[in-house]
Write a protein that binds this DNA or RNA. Structure first.
Lengths: 206, 206, 206, 206
DNA sequence: GATGAATGAGTCTTCATTCAT
DNA sequence: CATGAATGAAGACTCATTCAT
């Protein structure tokens, strides 16, 4: 009996994995709106109804897919902020671009889904907030130490995050500028450079 | 005869205006996907079929709504780039934010629609490209004159445009950061400041 | 004043002609169901509403188009039935095929419209009936003279008419058999031959 | 488990039957164009969407209805072609008329649908071609044996098929000639007689 | 736990017809 | 006479969700 339950749970877990993987693939390939429950269950080779044993609805499925990706992202973000200034920023920028590039379909999907569902909007905002807050904390520290000029740390943090994020989106998801025009390393360098100068640069009084 | 035609044309123009205005309002309020032709004609108090007298379909209606807004934006963008450097950038940034804030619903709608229709994606890309190209031309000039360090002008132009654009979107359309936290002038100042330093700043060798 | 009325009438007649010609072309090219009032007025370069000054509706327009064609057909059919037997039949068959081939689009249209509107069904039945009746009268005469065997003249007349008519339809409108496989003269010869033997042939008792 | 599946499959099969029967009835009664999906599901007392579980669209539903009828027809056509000549032809003619009379609504529907959808045109052409080809093969044989005069076998086969087919259509579907004027057996006899003489008849030289 | 048949709400689009000008 | 803007009815098709087995 206990064995049976064990087997059942195993089977259930396997089904869950299949569905989650299928959902990820379909969302990635087709986008949020174009993804249908039927499409996911077809790919997972389960019955249509089985979907609802593991997800409340499409939104929920996507949220669970994104949770997976987030783990990867947070890991990447753990990268030390120690060491040379430029190198630190470059590492962070590169990390983000690498993850974004790897999952461009899903990011695009998230951006798309955000418009369709308040829940996904919240998910997205909650996902990026830690990154922005980390930037802000760093800025506060730098200002307090007098290492950089006084800036509106909140607005600055959001602006810098926006720069990297939206550049990544248009570049990788929309091909503007094309990857032919701007190589990956150039993108990292430019964003790093802009970030560095934006924060640390000194402008001669005019 | 001419009078008669005049009256009819007047009425037709009025209907067209009603529909366009209604479309604008509904798109603004509900977003792209949630907007239905029925919703628009209800608001315009015309028959359902009348919609198709003036638009080919929903996509076409949205494109025509955006064309209106674009005119405003281009006008705004005509603002002179002459004069003090910081003031020039500030003027451009402020102009963009003013228009964006005034039409946040529509911008959001455009960003949403972009995912649903290749046509709208093209519209959006075509809309922003002139701005990015203008930035790039300016950068090329500045570099050639030796006024700023050598940068990848293409990537830089896209990155700076992204910064302003996406900050505006999250700020005005999603309320992150909230308008309470960051006042309009602070936003303008911060974006201007970052832009200025990112481009003109000198970083002490580390 | 009288002059004005005259001019008006002239103009009206011209419009009527334009519309009728346009209707004929559009029906011929697109078929009954696919023809729209808008399509006809577009081709006639008149206003949409003008159509209803000259026709009650689509059905009526088609009926008027067919009336034109009928005149041609009846003229053709006037061809003398005098002279050599085989030549007479051949002349009739050829006449029919010539007219059908020249207006295959309209015939097809008629056959199609017949299913959509009882009026057109009646038109079509009324159009063919005189031909069938003529055949029948001839058969009655031949039987009474003992020139042919006793046949059910009514059924025979309809059967022979059907043979020619439906052969023409599938051949010219549907391409079965193709015009490559069966040349025009072969079609005439075969139908004539079958008609001749069907009526005049003697079968050895079996 | 097998039992459960069995029950579900049974129910599904029942639904399929209901829908197919309903489709047949509605097509038969209203014709192709006038038949709506809603009309079919109403008659089958299923939800609108259920229709699309079993058919791709209206065209597909009609094709499936016709497939049923075809089976009957082919069975009928299996009737032996052996034995007395006249009897053989009579059997074939009678078989065709019996099936046609039984499904006059559907045949009419097919003829109508043929004009609306290339697929249905193909279905119809494919359906009749075997019959025509069979006739042609027979004719080729008879000619080669010298039992009948040399004829264009292709054209003759199509002409004879047309005669029976179109007579049946106008007679049973349009009532011209009416069934009062021409009794069923008379129709069979006349068509048989015409066929026989058309092929085997000898005409005295004139 | 898994299945998959059934549901039915929701939208776009076409077009014949009318009527004020 | 001619115009053409406006009407609104009608129908096909999709898909998220439920529930009996």
């Amino acid at each position: 009996m206990a064995e049976q339950v064990g087997k059942r749970q195993e089977r259930a877990a396997a089904t869950a994995d299949q569905l989650l993987a299928a959902a990820r693939e379909v969302f990635e390939a087709r986008g949020y709106q174009a993804t249908t429950v039927g499409g996911i269950t077809d790919r997972a080779t389960t019955a249509h109804g089985t979907f609802y044993l593991y997800f409340r609805n499409k939104e929920d499925a996507f949220a669970k897919v994104m949770a997976q990706v987030l783990d990867e992202l947070y890991e990447e973000a753990e990268a030390s902020w120690a060491g040379d200034l430029r190198a630190t920023i470059a590492r962070a920028v590169r990390g983000f671009l690498v993850v974004f590039r790897a999952h461009r379909g899903l990011w695009r999907c998230l951006l798309e889904g955000m418009h369709q569902s308040p829940t996904l909007e919240t998910i997205w905002l909650d996902l990026r907030r830690p990154f922005v807050e980390r930037i802000e904390r760093t800025l506060v520290l730098l200002v307090s130490r007098g290492e950089i000029r006084a800036v509106n740390t909140r607005a600055t943090a959001y602006a810098l995050a926006s720069m990297v994020e939206w550049f990544a989106f248009t570049h990788f998801a929309l091909g503007e500028p094309s990857e032919d025009d701007v190589a990956f390393d150039e993108a990292v360098d430019t964003l790093t450079d802009l970030w560095l100068h934006a924060v640390y640069g000194r402008v001669a009084p005019m």
